[in-house]
Amino acid sequence: MMSTRHLKRSIIIIISTFVLLLLIFTISVATGFASLSPDRLLPTLFGNGTAKENLILFTFRLPRILIAVLAGMGLALSGAILQSITRNPLADPGILGINSGAGLFVVFFVLLFGNSTGNHLYLLPLFALIGGLITAIFIYLFSYKKGEGIQPGRMLLVGVGLAAAINGALLTLASKMAREEYDFFANWAAGRIWGDDWLFVFALLPWLVLLIPFIYFKSNTLNTMALNEELSVGLGVKTNKERYTLLLVSVALAAASVSVSGGIAFIGLLAPHIARSLVGPRHQLFLPVAAMFGGLLLLSADTIGRVLLDTIGIPAGVIVSFIGAPYFLYLMAKK
């Protein structure tokens, strides 16, 4: 089993990751247009800020930051589960086509409602979620083969193919939109964190609150599954049933995250890999680190994008892909 020294080291890593996350949070609040200096952060947070400071923190920054962190966590965990159950280190919900499915439904949404801001905007995450889930069901159905069940590699292939087809379809649909509508969609697809409103935080939070404990509870199952199939059957894991449940959880997390954050790929790839290299493959330790790194990465990307080009901002998804894709190729070459 695990040596106490390793455990100690892992706990130190978990704590320092958390501290790092807080640091990025402070930086994110303190930079860019309408910023709040670090020494005013704590007083404002505890209710002693001026009206202006309150406005900046609670209306502008905090919701957006929380969405970045929560979505990053969701994507990271989703990727971690996918990698473990498929035993394929290259699995990522974005590459698997879930983003494309969600994107297609965002297009439908814009075609239905236009891009005018109004109460129906709160329906958008729901649309994206349904799109992501439907895509996942299709991936599932198409990769299911009688007698073999769902073979992970085939599932990835099916996902990539489905994504290519959906992308073709949605791009052609989107090019027919009015200009402003198209801009809205393009920003969503490029992964600009757009839902900077408390309501979106509350739309995303329940998923994480419900599913994270469930995943953590399944840590041991994931441990054995990540090793090899025969072994996990030998150890009494009902492989297929467990795998399907976990797959569903993973997809739900990804779809929920993407629905408020926009089309962001590669977080689900990067964060688990960093976590695994830091604390090893045991899910009990590696899942929390992966989740925190997910939040950290997406928040950093969003902050960088926001500060780099001040008025327009570069969508977080573009920055994540910029780092994530080369890393993906590196992983592939190394394997």
């Binding site: 290259l90 974005g94 590459i95 990835l156 292939l157 990539v160 994504a163 290519a164 790929a265 590669f266 892909s321 910029f322 994530g324 894709a325 080369p326 993906f328 190729l329 592939m332």
Partner: peptide, 10 residues
């Protein structure tokens, strides 16, 4: 195919 998907995304 996965490499292609990653390059496409990138």
């Amino acid at each position: 195919t996965l490499a292609g998907a990653a390059v496409t995304a990138f």
